[in-house]
């Protein structure tokens, strides 16, 4: 049963509160934590809210985006320089939930949710993690797999803005809006004279956390950016994913369609 809800006014106060309260759960937008709490849980006895800790806001500097971890998905979509992310953000839940859900929280929601993590992996984003004394900077793909240690807080996510038109995204779900992922594909592809010189691909919905499709990236880099080579490279995805069964799709189906959606994301057909 919940004993305390704290809303500290700064990051140091938040760390102090986490250290003071036993069995505390961090809460930002509440869209993942509150369903658990409302359903009844013994997993934690206190909540520490990040709402007033000063971790929201976006700044664009020298071609990079610095995003406070408590920035909501709606506020993120309103930043003109991040317009390329809007089609991806609009596939995440509903506008009402996006007014609440945060960038930091979205990293840790259970699959098949958390599509922004796949986007951040494709963008080569890093996350700043504070333990109250020190900070470390982890690639997002590492952080979503390792998750946070006790007393740690994600304070910021940052990435270099991709070249115009290089960010690709597609999401397969059971309905057009407000759907969980069967497969989510995000990618940043750079091609010079028709040859792929750089690519990073993030996948959601096909493993315990969002993952990087390194095998596909390796297979595609240096190849012609066309249907034949993209189709061939996308087949390598089975080495990067560990799909699961849920009420939306079977693991078999996810594995079967992942290469198709990678191709559709990359070349639009």
């Amino acid at each position: 049963m919940l004993q305390t809800v704290a809303t500290p006014g700064s990051l140091p106060e938040t760390h102090a509160m986490l250290a003071k309260l036993g069995s505390a759960c961090l809460i930002a937008g509440g869209t993942a934590v509150m369903p658990t709490l409302n359903g009844g849980t013994d997993e934690f006895t206190s909540l520490v809210s990040l709402r007033a800790a000063g971790l929201s806001g976006v700044s664009i500097k020298d071609g990079s985006a610095l995003i406070g971890a408590a920035t909501t998905l709606s506020d993120l979509a309103d930043v003109p320089a991040l317009g390329f992310l809007v089609p991806a953000l609009e596939t995440i839940a509903s506008p009402t939930i996006r007014n609440m859900a945060t960038v930091g929280g979205n990293l840790f929601v259970k699959q098949p949710y958390g599509d922004l993590a796949a986007c951040l992996i494709a963008l080569g984003a890093t996350a700043t993690v504070s333990d109250g004394t020190n900070t470390r900077i982890d690639p997002v793909e590492k952080l979503v797999a390792s998750r946070l240690g006790a007393g740690e807080i994600v304070t910021q996510v940052s990435f270099a803005l991709p070249a115009e038109g290089s960010f690709k995204f597609t999401k397969a779900g059971r309905k057009a809006m407000n759907a969980a992922a069967i497969v989510t594909v995000a990618a940043v592809v750079t091609a010079t004279d028709g040859t792929v010189t750089q690519c990073r691909i993030g996948l959601g919905g096909v493993a315990e956390c969002a993952v990087r499709a390194r095998s596909v990236e390796e297979a595609l880099t240096g190849k012609a950016f066309d249907r034949v080579h993209v189709t061939e490279a996308a087949q390598q995805a089975e080495r990067d994913i560990e799909p699961f069964d849920d009420s939306y799709a079977s693991a078999w189906y996810r594995a079967r369609v992942t290469p198709v959606h990678i191709r559709r994301a990359l070349i639009g057909e």
Binding site: V5, T7, M34, L47, R51, T96, M100
Partner: peptide, 10 residues
């Protein structure tokens, strides 16, 4: 916002 997801103290 959804009122069921907001702890009122926050």
């Amino acid at each position: 916002m959804m009122a069921c997801l907001l702890p009122v103290e926050t």
